[in-house]
């Protein structure tokens, strides 16, 4: 599964669209098998959302996200796990365990 997490240092970014980096993970079962960082260059939230769809991301883990972007991503088949806070990798591991 391809997972994306906008970052604020090592934590989940509290504001979708203002983050300068997005962590992209590829998981298999409960294991993280590949990870990359996508450095953003000032793209707005709609451009980021479109790129996530183009990249084939299946799950977005984020803090706050405006509801219209959330609805749009869901309609594109992406599962949005919002209102998350904490260290990004710990949250991913927790979600994979669950």
């Amino acid at each position: 599964m391809k997972i994306a997490i906008p970052l604020f240092k090592k934590r989940v970014s509290p504001h979708f669209g203002s983050s300068s980096r997005i962590l992209l993970l590829e998981t298999k079962g409960t294991e993280i098998c590949q990870e990359t960082i996508w450095d953003l260059g000032g793209e707005g939230p709609i451009e980021i959302a479109r790129r996530l769809v183009a990249l084939g991301v299946e799950k977005l883990i984020c803090g706050g996200i405006p509801s219209h972007y959330k609805d749009w991503l869901i309609r594109k088949g992406i599962t949005v796990v919002d209102n998350q806070r904490g260290v990004a990798r710990e949250i991913v591991r927790q979600l994979l365990r669950d």
Partner: peptide, 15 residues
């Protein structure tokens, strides 16, 4: 008890 940025969620929190 929470970090302010996790609740305030402003676009200026990070930068």
């Amino acid at each position: 008890g929470q970090y302010c940025f996790d609740l305030f969620r402003a676009n200026i929190c990070e930068k």
